[in-house]
């Protein structure tokens, strides 16, 4: 029963990683850059949801909508102001800008909300805990919602990229920007849309994360951000199913590592697994080998 309990906790944590990893992987696949500020957009989303609930006393649905809308705008603005001018620049310059943006967001949060952790309200997800096997196995409402949200997002995004016109345009831009623009696809707009989607998902991830782990502070997004980035690389960066698989596996490995091997070494185990996988499969579990493009 403990095994099952840990497995469900792992899937739930992994689902959060997967949703965050999607943001990394989509932006990487389409804009060819690592948006290290992504983890901090998650933290901003959680703070905005927190404020909507706590200070404006709006219902959870509104908190979700407000946080998603705010993060979408944030993502598009960050891309337009910080990354777009560097489109032709060396990737190292873009990476450093992204790290700078990450600190900017953290310091902004520090300025607005202070360093004292806030306790994320449990009222965000008020679904009762599910009790199974005569109370031996308890699944919280947050866990259920997290797993469900992950499934919905995955199915939605898969359909979007395979069916919708904009989704297909994203795949074109990801494969060959020049050829995409010859088709009449506005590459800058497509990249903006990618940031918008990734950032809206970051808001969802932030709310889910803080519903399960309610301590909210300016650095809340950092560690999950790094782990989700790891998950994206693990699954094969650029691949949507890869982000899903990588996130889930990472969450499960982390929880099992902590439960059965060592609490302290939990994170080290996660990264050790990543290293082994990358040694065997350099492009990740579901990643395609990189082909040089002229």
């Amino acid at each position: 029963m403990i095994f099952l309990d840990k497995l469900i906790t792992g899937i739930s944590l992994g689902s959060i990683y997967a949703i965050i990893a999607l943001g990394y992987t989509m932006v990487y696949g389409i804009a060819k850059m690592l948006n290290f500020a992504h983890g901090d957009v998650i933290m901003m989303g959680a703070y905005i949801a927190f404020c909507t609930l706590q200070y404006l006393n709006l219902p959870p649905v509104m908190a979700l909508i407000v946080a998603m809308a705010a993060c979408t705008v944030m993502g598009v603005v960050i891309e337009g102001l910080a990354y777009r001018p560097l489109r032709q620049a060396a990737s190292l310059a873009v990476l450093i800008t992204a790290i700078g943006m990450s600190y900017l967001l953290q310091n902004l949060a520090l300025m607005i909300w202070g360093a004292n952790p806030k306790s994320f309200p449990g009222t965000m997800i008020s679904i009762p805990t599910l009790s199974l096997f005569g109370g031996q196995l308890k699944i919280t409402g947050a866990t259920l919602v997290t797993i469900l949200a992950n499934v919905v997002i995955m199915v939605g995004l898969t359909l979007f990229t395979s069916r919708a016109k904009t989704g297909k345009a994203m795949r074109c831009v990801s494969e060959d920007r020049g050829a995409a623009s010859l088709m009449g696809i506005n590459v800058n707009r497509t990249i903006s849309i990618t940031f918008a989607i990734g950032s809206a998902l970051a808001a969802v991830a932030g709310i889910l994360l803080c519903s399960s782990y309610p301590t909210l502070q300016p650095t809340t997004g950092s560690m999950p951000g790094i782990k989700a980035f790891t998950a994206a690389v693990f699954g094969g960066i650029g691949s949507i199913p890869g982000a899903m698989l990588g996130g889930l596996l990472l969450g499960i490995i982390e929880i099992f590592g902590k439960a059965y091997i060592s609490t302290e070494l939990g994170d080290a185990i996660v990264f050790a697994v990543l290293i082994v996988v990358l040694l065997v499969r350099p492009s990740g579990l579901l990643g395609k080998p990189v082909r040089e493009k002229v």
Binding site: K168, R171, C172, E175, D176, G178, A179, S181, L182, M183, G184, I185, N186, V187, K288, V294
Partner: peptide
């Protein structure tokens, strides 16, 4: 004009090395 506006002007390029979308 930006390159994505050219096709609606009536100019199409079949580029060197084909550059079809390999994964589609």
């Amino acid at each position: 004009l930006p390159s994505h506006k050219m096709i609606s002007q009536g100019i199409a390029l079949c580029p060197e090395g084909r550059r079809i979308f390999q994964q589609m």
